[in-house]
Each structure stands twice: as C-alpha cells, then as structure tokens.
Computed example of a mutant assay.
Amino acid sequence: MTSGTGAPRRPDAAGPDPAQFRVHVVTQAIRLFSEFGYESTTVEQIAAAAGVSRRTFFRQFRSKEDVIFADHESLLEQVAGYLSGDFADPWLAACDAAELVFGHFRDRRELAVWRYRVVQRVPALRERELVTTYRYERLFTDFLRAAVPSAKPVHIVSFAAAMTATHNYLLRAMIRGDDTATSEQLHRALYEVRRTFGVVPQAAAGAHPGADLPQRAVTVVTFPVGASPAEVAEQVRRELEQNPPTS
C-alpha cells in the first residue's frame, strides 16, 4: 500500500490495529536484541526495523525494557478477563488460566526463545521477569481469595505459588527445547498440584481419578511445618527439576 506520493505508507501513518502493531514492534525488537545484544540495540534501530517513527514507538512503549515484556502485559489482561467469569471449580479455572499462558508461548516459541536468550544475559531484565512472574501468581491468588472465601489464605497462597512454579518450570523446559514439556504434560502436572492440595472434586477423584489424563504423574514434596508460601514454591520447583514428571 502506498501514500498519495507513491512512497510506501508507514504503519504509524496508516493507523494499524493496535494489538497487531504492538506484536509487530515487539517481534522486531526482540529479534534485534537477540542478534545484536540488548544494550547495543537502539530505539531508532527498532523503529526502523518495524517501519515506524521514534515518536510512534514511544507512544506505545516507555522504554526498550517495556518492549521485552509487552506481550506479558497483554497476557495479564487476558488472564484477568478470563478469571472474571463464574466457575464451578475455581481451582481448576486458575490452572486453566495458567495453561492459556503456556499455550501463548508454545504458539510463539521462536519469539519466546529469542526473549529467553536476551533476558538471561541482562540482570535487570531477569529482575523484571521475576516481578512479572509474581504478578501472575498474585493474580491467581486474588482470584481464588474472592472465588473461594472459605479457604484458608495460606492454602490459597501456597496453591498459587505451587501452580505458578509448576507452569514456569515446564514453560522454561519447552523454551529450551524439551520435547516432553507439552501442554498435555502441564495439564497432568497441574492436575497433580490440585490433587496434592486436595481441591479435586470428590466425584471426579473417586469415580474417574484423572479421567481426562491419559497418564498420571505423582510428585511428592515435603517441607517443614510453618514454611512460607515462597519456601513451598521453591521446594516444588526443586523437586520438579530433580525428578521431572515422566510422560
């Protein structure tokens, strides 16, 4: 498509779909970061690669760091929107939301790999990633507190930490190229988290334990009485790393 002068029309002049525009800029930015390094890549280079002006870039993103995690911002909104519905089984709904996040990055694995490599090289980005992970965990915690007011707060916080740690372990394994880190494996692992915390409905657990799961993997985690939710989550992560569930 061209402008009246015959020159190619720039995306910022055409008024592109905001969501598609952000995806396009994010993809170009992370590609450049992966190829040339985060610190060496300038905003001007990103704008040029995306075919937009510097001003347009800053209308959408505050900094290069924001570009790295832009799709997480969109995902957090999507997860919050999903969890705003009514659910017969809130514990399962929280796990389903985690699977939505996994599916997003599975379908965009190449971009996820680029970002993983960039983040691992830059300490400030690793810190931002930890904050982003906590935001997902807090979203699950707040949802469950509202949806299951009778549950003990420590039970909810521990569950949210365990399911987030399980998701993140398999997500990173998938990004690193582990063929066993699939959506099905995550589904099985999250089922076991629910079963361990005793939140699988009795009818489902009694009549057809894990009926929707072709295979079952059991992970046993022990921790001291009085351990904090963060310590529980860390122990789950360590156990999964040392004894990953088999498919």
Rank of each mutant, 00 (worst) to 15 (best):
A189G: 04
P8D: 02
Q60L: 05
M174V: 10
T182R: 09
P245A: 14
L139M: 08
D178A: 03
H72K: 01
I46M: 14
I46L: 10
D89G: 08
F159H: 05
R106Q: 13
R172V: 13
D66V: 02
G15F: 10
A181V: 08
W91D: 04
A205G: 03
V23C: 04
Q120F: 05
A94E: 09
D212H: 09
A173K: 01
F140S: 13
R237H: 13
D89M: 09
V52L: 07
Y191I: 07
Y116L: 09
Q28G: 04
S53I: 15
E77P: 01
E65G: 04
V232M: 04
R115D: 06
T164K: 00
R54G: 07
T182P: 09
G177Y: 05
V23L: 13
E192M: 11
A217E: 12
V43D: 10
S247D: 13
L83G: 00
R106H: 11
P123S: 13
V101Y: 09
V23M: 08
E39H: 07
D89H: 14
G81I: 11
H24K: 02
R115S: 09
D212W: 03
V118L: 07
V218L: 12
Q202D: 06
K152E: 08
T164D: 08
L139S: 05
D66W: 00
E137K: 14
A203G: 01
L130E: 09
Q235D: 08
V218M: 09
P16V: 04
D71P: 06
K152F: 12
V79I: 14
G6M: 10
I175A: 00
V220E: 15
T41K: 02
S74G: 11
K64P: 00
V119R: 00
R59Y: 05
V225K: 00
G103S: 11
G51S: 11
V193Y: 01
A146Q: 15
R216K: 11
Y38Q: 05
E99Q: 15
L76N: 07
M174I: 11
P123A: 12
F21A: 13
D86T: 15
F57Q: 06
A181D: 12
G210F: 07
T27M: 04
V43Q: 06
E35V: 00
G4Y: 11
Q120S: 14
E192P: 00
T133N: 11
Q202K: 13
F69C: 03
G226Y: 02
V157H: 03
A112H: 03
A160H: 05
R128N: 09
R55W: 01
N243I: 15
S158H: 02
V154G: 02
V26N: 03
H72L: 07
E241L: 11
T219W: 01
V200D: 02
T180H: 03
L186K: 02
Q45D: 07
V154H: 10
Q45E: 09
D86C: 06
S34Y: 04
V221H: 01
H155A: 06
L170K: 07
E73L: 15
K64R: 13
A233R: 05
A29S: 05
T166E: 05
E110F: 14
G206A: 14
S247H: 06
P153L: 13
A112E: 10
V236H: 00
F36N: 15
R22H: 10
A19N: 10
A165F: 08
Y82A: 12
R216G: 14
M1D: 15
F102H: 03
I68Q: 06
A13Y: 13
L111E: 04
R9L: 15
L92T: 03
D17L: 10
R59C: 03
T141D: 02
H72M: 06
